[in-house]
Design a protein around this nucleic acid. Sequence first.
DNA 1: ACGATTGTCCCAAACGTTTGGGTATGGTTA
DNA 2: TAACCATACCCAAACGTTTGGGACAATCGT
Lengths: 342, 342
Amino acid sequence: MPGRYKSSSVTLKTIAQAAGLDVSTVSRVLSGTPDEVSRAASPATAAAVRDWAQRLGYHPNPHAKSLRTARSNLIGVLVPRLSDMVLATIYEGVEDAGARNGLATFVMNTYDRPAEQRARIDLALSRHVDGLILGDAHRDAVVLDEVAARGVPFVLVSRYASKYPSVTCDDYLGGSLVAEHFLDLGHVKVGVVAGESFASTGVDRSSGFVDTYRKAGIEVLTVNSAFDARGGHEAAEYLIKQAPNLTAIFAVNDFAAIGVLGAVRDAGLRPGRDIAVAGYNDTQLAAELPLPLTSVRSPLHTMGTRALELLVSVLRGQNPSSERLAPELVIRESTLLHVRNS
Amino acid sequence: MPGRYKSSSVTLKTIAQAAGLDVSTVSRVLSGTPDEVSRAASPATAAAVRDWAQRLGYHPNPHAKSLRTARSNLIGVLVPRLSDMVLATIYEGVEDAGARNGLATFVMNTYDRPAEQRARIDLALSRHVDGLILGDAHRDAVVLDEVAARGVPFVLVSRYASKYPSVTCDDYLGGSLVAEHFLDLGHVKVGVVAGESFASTGVDRSSGFVDTYRKAGIEVLTVNSAFDARGGHEAAEYLIKQAPNLTAIFAVNDFAAIGVLGAVRDAGLRPGRDIAVAGYNDTQLAAELPLPLTSVRSPLHTMGTRALELLVSVLRGQNPSSERLAPELVIRESTLLHVRNS
DNA sequence: ACGATTGTCCCAAACGTTTGGGTATGGTTA
DNA sequence: TAACCATACCCAAACGTTTGGGACAATCGT
């Protein structure tokens, strides 16, 4: 009865009966390699089968398929927080690439808490994922070592750790780009809002920055922080109290940078004018802020897609090489007003 | 061989053999109702089974279970964009509640494009989801009507449409709260950045606002926009050009509001001081902006959890009633400076 | 002391696939 | 014309569950 297909209860058997064939033949036609199908049925029969499948609206039952083949075509993704736009954008990339590769994906938050990481990994494994993409790796790779010991295929994204395959941005370079920019502008009293010490992103961005300044013979004030606006706010408050003569602050994350802007203003200083501010990731927001924010653009979406593809190659058994994508400095007013002014 | 469990190939049969029982008994003990288990095995046997399951690290194979029961315990979630923090936060709520209810969830972007919506819904159905949560409903419920016609259980979240079950924020009320606030402050020349006309959120927020002003005998300038910073920026540019004497703008979304702040500044005006600005959703960012943003707090996470729970009740066959959660106005400097100044 | 009841468990079919084997039929080859 | 070989199929088992229906004791009521 065409025109009324509820929950797609048309199976191989339905088609087999319609076409007067065996389910095995139908199966081979519908999901075999070109080679298999030619061995399984005559061209005419194959066409008929495909026609029936089309007409009946056949969709293979993924559970039956997974049960039989012991492959779920399912990938679990762990992130610190999905409501962090950075991770959400990366996940969009993962999801996109997954769809293109016939892999379903799902995300879970771990809030950067090892206990949650373990719990979520167990959950993913109980769903029989084929592999994991971890966006929440800590530098001490203890949870990762556990996963690896269990033989679960996985790749890292955004952050790297130990020598596990990863797709990251060249954060060290990104940090040094900001430092060079600041040096060009003549800033000698500068601070870094360095993010969390367990994340390679924050660490690399800040050490790229610090090292570059050090090469110029200048020491930099550094303070760790959460990766969000509040974290940036608090960190900047601290920096300004420690060194009231600061003229520039690099926050390793756009949201932290926004917090920095707030703290600067709260200190009675003019963001951008009295204290230059730069962020990282070049979020949508950066360009649209009342004070457009200088930021390092990192290819978030691409990182996601490349991570998925890297995982695919791991699943194929190829031994994978980590990838480090290039960042790009985007200069905006938040670091330009000071110069004009001095 | 304990200590070496790779991909959890311990099945009911493994346990049955270990305990010297039949798989059916083990199954009933492990996943029957208390009633069933007591009918299936003696307390001692049941304990032994559970003990073996524990010791062997048994995890039921979800594919086998789904195949057998024709229920996947899988929920598909559609959102316009996951990198929109608002939707990401709602999804976090969905995911949380899903985990609590033994339901797996996954999200997909539709970019508010009907073609994508249909494609993603098909994709979800081909994964045999038990139900859908749609965060991207359009007011003309044409895609929704199609889904309903196919008999797929679904609920809406964030936006409502037609008379489909939904969990939303009382956006009309939210808009009117802002209007009352603006009226209190004495603003008579005001504009609204109204969001997309196909989304109930934008429409309700702006009409709540407009109606309240109209009751006070004041007409309001309104312009539609995208829900992001750039959209807010462009819309505010337009408003300011149309009515240079504007003293307050309500943007139906925090990100749009940030764009508005930028546009105000670009127009050579002082945000907050020359033009008061209010947003919606009370995003993390709102409080931390250099100019803290007055915003309407909507219970995003809760909306997500309630939506999942509503879907659960739909799946149980109970006929569900939509839920409208209360918003709350959070007043900050972006609407306060003007007053002090006048 | 007999049938009825209960407690404890097992058997077997089914869900929709995939896949390693068949087995007819017809056409070539020697 | 017998042996052979493709071609075009089909059979049946298996993946790990769930679930309706037994089966076999021991216990009970009378």
